[in-house]
Amino acid sequence: MPEKLAVAVDFGGTKVEAALVSANGTVVEGSRHRAPTGRAADSSQLEQSVTGVVASAIAARPQGDTIVGVGIGSAGPVLVSEGLVSPLNVPAWRDYPMRELIRSSVAGELGDVPVELQMDGVAITLAEHWVGAGQGVDNLMGMVVSTGIGGGLILGGRVVAGPTGNAGHIGHVDVAGIVGEDTFGNRGSLEAIASGPHTVAWANSQGWVGGTGEELAASYAAGDELARQAIVRTGTALGQAIASATALLDLELVAIGGGFSQSTPDLLTVIRETIARHHFGFVRKVRVAPSGLSGTGPLVGAGAIIHRAEMLRRP
């Protein structure tokens, strides 16, 4: 039976990926491709990375299947109405028209299919609600803890993206009592404290020797005290931010994915313990769970922008 597929694009601070996603929320085998992005890349290199992975994904289409649209999840901020992206960790692109870049690159192969852009946090939340940890939950936040920290919201069973598309950008809320790196002009933001690179930078400042989140995770597993302090600090900041979001929005569930979120299961333990100290019971009741989608969540979510478009329409 021929399938209807979406091209899914996940653009982040270190890489861009593209794949084909089916209408039941699975990534088509052999269609997933990635290329680098990052702080050092110029605009031309970024364009080549994006169009290259998209073309490779399309080329993997099984015979007889139809591509019905392209969904893009991008690190923010974004301006959804104009299709513009300004990823904080990719300085070469500010108000860059990524939707139009992809639309023009696929037009010859796919024709006039929908090409839709959302913030990556919205995409991951759609994925969790569709086929992940958030199935059956009407009030949830999806989070990505990786090179940056992002989030998205579903409230009352519908996506809440806001007028620009940046609602849920929890990485840039302030966290009281913890000071991070001087980045983006705000050392008190959650991302400046608790992203993978900023957690590593804090550990380095305390004397830990290592350069990556993976190395920090290995040190933690080996019982290194500085690595333990770094994970506790990051988990505490994440827990405080989630508690604040729950106090504002009465969330039922927060599903957390992203590479650094998997550094140790103890990170979720610290997050939960922090929330458990909140004085309001309706805040303490929020569940915090790991993503139910392993590493495919961002791509499945980008596919959901097409396959579950009704979730994004205003009533």
Rank of each mutant, 00 (worst) to 15 (best):
E3N: 13
A6H: 13
V7K: 14
D10A: 14
G12R: 00
G13P: 03
K15E: 05
R32K: 15
H33D: 09
H33K: 12
E47C: 15
Q48V: 12
T51V: 00
V53H: 04
P62H: 09
Q63K: 10
G71P: 14
G71K: 08
P77K: 09
V78G: 11
E82V: 13
L84F: 10
L88R: 13
L88V: 03
N89Q: 01
P91M: 02
Y96S: 01
L101F: 07
I102F: 07
G108S: 15
L110Q: 12
L110V: 06
G121E: 09
V122H: 13
I124P: 11
A127N: 12
W130M: 12
G136K: 01
G136H: 02
D138Q: 08
D138E: 14
N139D: 10
L140D: 06
L140T: 04
V145H: 09
V145F: 07
T147I: 09
L155E: 10
A161E: 03
N166V: 07
A167R: 09
G171P: 04
D174L: 08
D182H: 10
N186G: 03
G188W: 04
W208Y: 06
V209Q: 02
G211F: 11
G213C: 07
G213K: 04
E215S: 02
L216R: 08
L216V: 12
A217S: 13
A217H: 03
A221L: 04
L226G: 11
L238E: 01
A241S: 01
A247Q: 06
A247V: 05
L251N: 00
L253E: 07
L253V: 02
I256R: 01
G259Q: 11
G259A: 11
F260N: 05
L267I: 03
V270D: 04
I275V: 09
G281Y: 02
S291A: 10
S294P: 02
P298W: 01
V300L: 15
I305Y: 01
I305N: 00
